[in-house]
Structures are given as C-alpha cells and as structure tokens.
Design a protein around this nucleic acid. Structure first.
Lengths: 231, 231
DNA sequence: CTTTAATCTTAAGAAAATCTTAAAATTTTT
DNA sequence: AAAAATTTTAAGATTTTCTTAAGATTAAAG
C-alpha cells in the first residue's frame, strides 16, 4: 500500500513541526509549507492526498488557497484556524474545504479527522485531477484514461511509465534528477543509485519519440536530469 | 437530478423536525428516525445518502449505530451530540463517522457540513444519474430497463455485473482500480485484496466481448485498473 | 586535438508483480 | 431442494520491473 501524503501549511513553524510528528506516527508522509504559494507549488509537484491549511497566513491566505486548490484538485482540505465564529466555519466549508478545526486543537482529534477524510478519500478514489489533460504540443497525458496520446494516437504506458510522465508533465519544463524522479514517482525516501529511472526513460522514449536518439519531448540535461520540453 | 436523501435520527422530536425544515430548504429528501434500530431499518429499506445521528439515544446509542452502519454501508455519517469533550469526538470519528457537531449547533453550520459531505459523495457522480441510456459505440446500458445491449441485442447481466457496468459506464473512459470498483459497486469501505472483481470482469467480458481475450469494450490498464473504452 | 572521466543509452535476461482463467465452495434466491 | 449467483482458491500466462553490464556520448583537462 502506497503511503498517503499530507501537506501541512501554516506560517507557524512550531505547529507544522508538531503536526509532522503526529502525522508520521500515523504513518502518513508529510510535506511542509509555510505560505499558500508554497502549498500550491507542492501540490503541483507531488502526490498529496490531504491538505491541512491554516487560514491566517501572509501572502496568500487559507481561503484563497482553498479556492485555488479546488480549481485543480478534488482532495480533502481541512482548515485550521484560531477564529471560531460560526460564520467563518461556514465560509470555509462552502469554499470547498471538507472540515474545519479551531485552534487550539487536540492533536488526537485532528488525527481522527484526518483519518476520517482519508477513509472517504481512498474509498472514492477521487484522486483524480479535474481537468484530466496535460499537454505539451501534440503530446497529451489523459489522467482519466491513464493514457498518453501523441498526435492524437493513444499509447499504452505501464503504471511506472505513467507515473513518470505524470510527474514530469505536471512540472513541464522543469528538470529533475533521477533521484528526484525516483523519490516522487515511487514515493520512497531514497534511491540507491541504480539505473532503473534511465531504463524507464528509454522505454518511454521508444514509445513516444519518433527518433529516440533525438528526443523531441523527453529531453536529457547532461549531468542534471530529465524534463519534458514545453511546446 | 435525483434527490439526495438524508436520514435524521434523534430521540428529540423537536430537533428532528427543525432539521427537516432546514434540509428541505436545501432540497434534500428527509427520512426520520428516533432510535438506532429505526435508523438501521430505514437504511436497509431506502436509498439514503447521508446520516445525521444523535449520540445519546435510548435502545441503541449513536456510536453503536455508527458501527453497525459501517459494517454495511459506506455513506457519510455526521454525529450530533451534546457532549463536547474531545475524547468523545475522537471515538465518534474513529468508529467511522465522517464528522461531528456538538449541540447546540448553528443549523447553518450543520447545513454547510452536510453539503460538504455530499459534495465528496457525489463527486464522481457515482450514484446520481438520470435514468436513460449510457452508450459507447454499439454497447448500450439501459438504466431504465436495467439491461445491456450489444449491437441491439439484449444481454442478461446479474445484479453485480450490472452494478459494475453501471459504475464503469457512468464514468466511461476513466480507469478504476479493483479496489475502487469494489468499494463503489458493493458500497463497502474496504476490499481485502480478493479476486472477486476480476472474476466478475471476466464474466462480463464473456458476455459482451466477441473475443474476451482481446476486449473491445472492457479494457484493462496494467498495474492500474479497468475501464470502458469510449467510442 | 586527444585523452580521460563522468554520464547517459541500450540490450538482455531474471525476478517480481499482475492479470486471466477454471473450478470448487459458499451464499442467496427461486 | 434445486438453481443461480457470488466468492474464494489456486495455478498458469502474461506483462512489467529491476539489475547488470557493455557501449556511446559528452564535458573537461591536458
């Protein structure tokens, strides 16, 4: 069973770290952020299954962040806040949050709520990104059908190949080292310097590139890593 | 659009009736119960989409009821209670409730929470659909007659087979894991790695595919799941 | 310009994971 | 009680994944 990742976003470092401890105890992966912008970036780069979001943050506040997340993703969001007035609760929930906990909170209660949301989440498998289509030129990744299309033609990918393409296409143009690719796609903390990522890269190239020797989409950056070229 | 039904269960008649008014305003169908036993009975007899459950009830209390419901169904449960101690909250959520609201509550907040749970529930459009015809090429699922047709020819499906086809065809083109299929079609919270979904898939293929070895409609995506191909 | 070291590409085969299928056991319905 | 439907079990087929290792390419140094 794959690990479930929780994104914790709060400008108060102490809270983030405390939550990290509790979440890790429950065997969740933890991704930390301190601003709404950071949170959105993390969401686009990594597979996140639930978001714990502070409402009072500098830069981009929690509610705006919630709205932005909802435009893209359908994952559970639990709002954390010092405000406890009813009106705020309603606002949070109606903006697309799934639950609302007021500070100071009992960490165990929060864990119970996380678990509750995760149960629903894994049950419905709603880990589906809404748009469903990631594009670069005539390269399209359909996250619903879990297939890749080149010039409209469907190409079968294996689960790992799909995972790599999903990661790279979500972050189109950004170069990632083999270690980074491995850690994100396999969702494991380390990569023991094996050759498995390059092998998968080659496989994908064979499937999607006209001439795998001179890749048009899946490019290497010598000494650094791989990326999907933006078109 | 089919109406979504809420089961309200509280021994306090006044509360049930108040909630009924609010829920009807939001266009939910309301089913009333005053004991846990009545609630269970209602659940087995009618299509209920969410449960509001008082924790302090004579006969069969709210938590025990929650457990019993969870053994059978995977619908959202919101616990209502006068107790507001943390320990109770935790207990409620861990027993399978999805949310917890303490009395006295603001009805608007409760409505927001109901809406929030319903949003998740209906996210995949998994249960609500206008009865009619779902089509993919020469494959037609008639949800009124509850029958499947291939090239106009009616094919008999068993209840389970029909359920699987309904789910997959409602979400045509979308790939689902066996776990997801199981949880949706059986409406149960977990699927303990058994083989029953693949067996049903095979049965369906035998009935609808010309060559079950090379399915045209019910396709596998290796390592990920199954889907109905869009035509 | 040549050499060297680092990095990437490619191939092939072994191991692991996943899917298919058949048949028997169980449960439910008729 | 019989029939039908569903679930479990388990073996075989297939596909995918990983590892190894050799060859090719690139960047940098002499």
């Amino acid at each position: 069973m794959e690990k479930l990742n929780v994104l914790v976003c709060d400008d108060d470092t102490a809270i983030v770290e405390a939550l990290e401890i509790y979440l890790k105890q429950e065997n969740y992966g933890v991704v930390k952020a301190h601003t709404g912008t950071q949170a959105l970036k993390a969401l686009s780069e990594q597979k996140i299954h639930l978001v714990l979001l502070d409402i009072m943050m500098p830069e981009l506040d929690g509610l705006s962040t919630t709205i932005k997340i909802r435009e893209e993703l359908n994952i559970p969001i639990i709002i954390l806040s010092a405000k406890s007035e009813d009106t705020d609760k309603i606002t949070g929930l109606n903006f697309g949050a799934d639950d609302y906990v007021t500070k100071p909170f009992n960490p165990l209660e929060l864990m119970a709520r996380v678990k509750s949301q995760m149960r629903r989440y894994t049950a419905l498998g709603s880990l589906v990104s809404k748009s469903g289509l990631l594009k670069s030129g005539s390269l399209e990744l359909d996250t619903e059908a879990k297939e890749l299309r080149v010039d409209g033609e469907a190409i079968k990918l294996t689960a790992t190949e799909y995972g790599i393409m999903l990661f790279l296409m979500k972050n189109m143009g950004h170069v990632f080292s083999t270690e980074q690719i491995y850690e994100h796609v396999w969702n494991e903390p380390s990569y023991s310097a094996e050759n498995t990522v390059p092998v998968h890269i080659r496989r994908i190239r064979e499937k999607i590139e006209i001439n795998p020797r001179e890749p048009k989409y899946l490019k290497v950056v010598w000494g650094i890593g791989y990326k999907i070229e933006k078109y």
